Simulated assay, not measured.
Amino acid sequence: MASEPLGDRIRAYRSMRQMTVRGLAAQAQASASFISQLERGQTSASVGMLRRIAVALGITVADLFSEEEASGHRVVRRAERPELHAGQGSRKYLISQRPLQNLEVYSGEFEPGASTGDEQYTHGDSQEILLVLRGAVAVHLGEKSLLRMGPGDSVEYRTSVPHRVVNDGEEEAEVLWIIGPPTPD
C-alpha cells in the first residue's frame, strides 16, 4: 500500500493549484481513478509517475516527500532567495516559493548595459507585471514597442508576447516580475 502522507501532500498541492483530480491526471498522463487512489493511500506510484505528478504540480519529487506543511505562510529572507541562471551582469531571484500557487514573483538586478538576454522571449500565456524598483530600464514588447521606465513605473503584458528587459541607465537597476498564473518552467 502507498503512504497516506504522500497522498495527503499530493492532494494538498493539487488543491493549492486549484486543480481537479481529472486535471492532474490529464497533465500527469494518468487516470483520474489512479490519482484518486494514490491520494487516498490505496495504491503506490512508480518514480516515473511521481516525476510526472510533480511536474504537473509545479514542484519537485522531493517536495512530495517533504515533512514541511504543504500550505501556510512561508518567509524567504533576501539572502536565502534561490538564484536562477541569468545573463552576464544580471541576477534573477525567485521570491515566491514552490509549490507555486496562483502567481510567481521574481526579483531581477541588472548592471548598466545588462539585459534578460540578446533576444526577446516568451513563456506560456499568463499575465505579467514588471515593476521598476530602482534605476532605469528599457522594456521591449513585441516588434514595435519600446518603453523607457524608471523607479515606480510598471507595465502589464501577456507572457506570450515576446519581451526583453535592458538596463539602459548608468546605475544598477532592480525590477520585480509578478506572473499569474505561474508559467511552465
Rank of each mutant, 00 (worst) to 15 (best):
Glu67Ala: 12
Ala173Pro: 03
Ser154Lys: 14
Gly7Val: 04
Ser33His: 03
Pro82Thr: 01
Gly169Ser: 13
Arg14Gln: 09
Leu24Glu: 00
Leu133Ile: 15
Gly87Lys: 13
Gln18Phe: 07
Pro181Thr: 08
Trp177Gln: 08
Ser145Leu: 14
Ala2Gln: 12
Arg77His: 12
Asp185Cys: 03
Tyr157Glu: 14
Leu38Met: 05
Thr159Ser: 04
Glu156Thr: 14
Glu104Trp: 05
Ile10Ala: 00
Ala86His: 09
Glu156Trp: 04
Met1Val: 15
Gly23Ser: 11
Gly113Cys: 12
Ala30Trp: 04
Phe65Val: 03
Trp177Asp: 09
Glu128Cys: 06
Ile35Glu: 02
Glu80His: 08
Gly72Cys: 05
Arg74Val: 09
Gly169Ala: 13
Pro162Phe: 10
Gly169His: 12
Thr60Glu: 01
Gln27Asp: 08
Glu128Arg: 09
Val76His: 08
Ala86Met: 06
Ala12Pro: 07
Ala56His: 05
Ala45Tyr: 07
Pro162Met: 06
Ile129Lys: 11
Arg14Ile: 02
Ala26Pro: 08
Gly113His: 10
Gly117Phe: 01
Thr183Tyr: 03
Val47Tyr: 00
Ser107Phe: 09
Gly180Cys: 08
Arg17Met: 05
Glu80Tyr: 10
Val155Ala: 14
Glu171Lys: 14
Ser15Met: 00
Val165Tyr: 04
Ile53Thr: 07
Pro99Ile: 07
Leu24Trp: 10
Thr116Asp: 09
Tyr106Asn: 15
Phe65Thr: 04
Glu119Asp: 15
Pro181Ser: 08
Arg91Pro: 06
Tyr157Phe: 15
Gln101Gly: 06
Pro99Gln: 04
Glu83Cys: 09
Arg81Lys: 06
Gly72Tyr: 11
Asp185Ser: 10
Thr60Asp: 03
Glu69Gln: 14
Ser160Met: 02
Leu57Glu: 02
Leu141Trp: 13
Ala114Ser: 14
Gln29Gly: 13
Ala138Thr: 13
Leu146Val: 15
Pro82Leu: 00
Arg164Phe: 12
Glu143Asn: 12
Arg81Asp: 03
Gly23Lys: 00
Ala30Gln: 15
Glu39Arg: 03
Tyr13Cys: 06
Ile10Gln: 01
Gly87Arg: 15
Ile95Asp: 05
Ala136Thr: 14
Glu68Gln: 09
Ser33Val: 08
Ile129Thr: 11
Gly72Gln: 08
Leu94Gly: 12
Gln37Met: 05
